[in-house]
Amino acid sequence: MVEKLKAVERSRPGTAAELQAVQEGIRVLENLVSMGEEKNRVQLLALLVPTLISYLLDENAISSAPQVSKSLHDFALQNLMRIGPLYPAAFKTVIGAAPELKTRLESAVRANQASSKAKAAARQAQPAVQAAPTIKLKTSFF
C-alpha cells in the first residue's frame, strides 16, 4: 500500500475518485501511526511524512496544476500541519533526517501563508457600497 501511495508522486490522480482513494490510503497510514507504539512512531512517520511531502506542488506549479492535484496538495499540507504538533519529536527526527523534505515543506507552508494573506487582503480591499443618505431635505433654499 505504501508503494502505491508513493507512486502517486509520479502519476498524480486524474479524477476525484482516484484522489479519494489516495486520501483514504493516507488516512489508513495516519491511523497506523496513531495506533503504533511510541518507540515505533519514528519509523511509521518515516513512511507517512515523505509520502505527504511528495504530494506538495512547487509554488510555481500550483497555479497551472489541475484542480485534482491542487486538492491533493492542500490535503497533504493540512495533514502535515496537523501531524507535526501531534508527534513533535518524531516529526522533527524524520524531517531532520532529510533536508530536502524540510526545504520542500517550508516552501509549501510559505506559499500557503502568502496565498492566505493575499486572499485576506483582496477581501478587505473590496470597497463597501455606500448607501444613499436616508435624510432628504424637503425644502429648497434656492
Results as ranks from 00 to 15, higher is better:
Glu3Met: 09
Leu32Cys: 06
Ala65Leu: 01
Arg12Leu: 02
Arg104Glu: 03
Ala97Met: 09
Leu77Asn: 08
Ala16Ile: 05
Gln124Val: 13
Ala61Arg: 13
Glu3Asn: 13
Asp58Cys: 12
Ala122His: 15
Ser115Cys: 04
Lys6Gln: 11
Gly96Asp: 00
Glu38Tyr: 14
Val22Met: 02
Ala98Thr: 11
Arg41Pro: 09
Ile95Thr: 00
Leu52Ala: 10
Tyr55Ser: 03
Ala122Thr: 14
Leu5Lys: 03
Leu56Phe: 14
Val109Asn: 01
Ala97Val: 02
Ala76Asn: 02
Glu59Cys: 10
Ala61Trp: 04
Glu30Phe: 08
Leu45Arg: 04
Lys92Ala: 00
Val8Asn: 01
Lys102Cys: 05
Glu37Asn: 13
Ser116Ile: 12
Ala132Gln: 10
Ala97Phe: 03
Asp74His: 14
Leu32Phe: 05
Val109Ala: 08
Gln20Asn: 07
Lys117Met: 15
Leu72Pro: 05
Glu3Ser: 13
Arg10Trp: 07
Pro66Asp: 15
Val129Thr: 06
Asn31Thr: 03
Tyr87Arg: 01
Thr103Phe: 02
Pro66His: 15
Arg12His: 12
Val129Tyr: 06
Lys102Trp: 03
Val94Asn: 04
Lys39Leu: 07
Ala21Leu: 11
Asn60Asp: 14
Thr103Trp: 04
Ala21Asn: 07
Leu45Lys: 04
Ala125Thr: 06
Arg110Trp: 07
Arg110Cys: 06
Asn112Phe: 15
Pro13Ile: 07
Lys138Pro: 05
Ala132Tyr: 07
Val22Cys: 02
Ile26Trp: 03
Glu18Asp: 07
Leu52Cys: 13
Gly36Tyr: 15
Asn40Cys: 13
Ala125Trp: 10
His73Val: 02
Glu3Gly: 11
Glu18Pro: 00
Ala118Ile: 07
Thr93Val: 06
Ala125Gly: 15
Leu137Met: 12
Thr103Gly: 05
Ala65Lys: 07
Val129Glu: 09
Arg12Ile: 00
Gln67Ser: 10
Val33Asp: 01
Leu77Asp: 04
Gln126Ala: 10
Val2Lys: 03
Pro88Ala: 00
Thr139Lys: 12
Ala89Phe: 12
Leu101His: 11
Ala132His: 07
Phe75Val: 02
Ala17Tyr: 07
Leu86His: 06
Ala16Cys: 00
Lys4Leu: 11
Gln126Gly: 06
Lys138Gln: 09
Val68Glu: 09
Ala121Trp: 13
Ile95Tyr: 00
Lys4Met: 09
Ala128Val: 05
Leu29Gly: 02
Ile53Asn: 01
Ser64Val: 05
Gly36Arg: 14
Ser54Gly: 14
Lys92Thr: 01
Leu32Ser: 08
Gln43Gly: 14
Arg82Phe: 06
Lys136Trp: 08
Phe75Pro: 10
Lys138Thr: 09
Ala131Val: 09
Arg12Cys: 00
Ala121Gly: 08
Gly96Trp: 02
Lys119Gly: 00
Arg41Gln: 14
Ala21Trp: 01
Leu47Thr: 02
Ala61Thr: 08
Val94Leu: 07
Lys4Asn: 09
Gln67Leu: 13
Val28Gln: 12
Lys70Tyr: 10
Asn60Pro: 06
Ser71Gly: 11
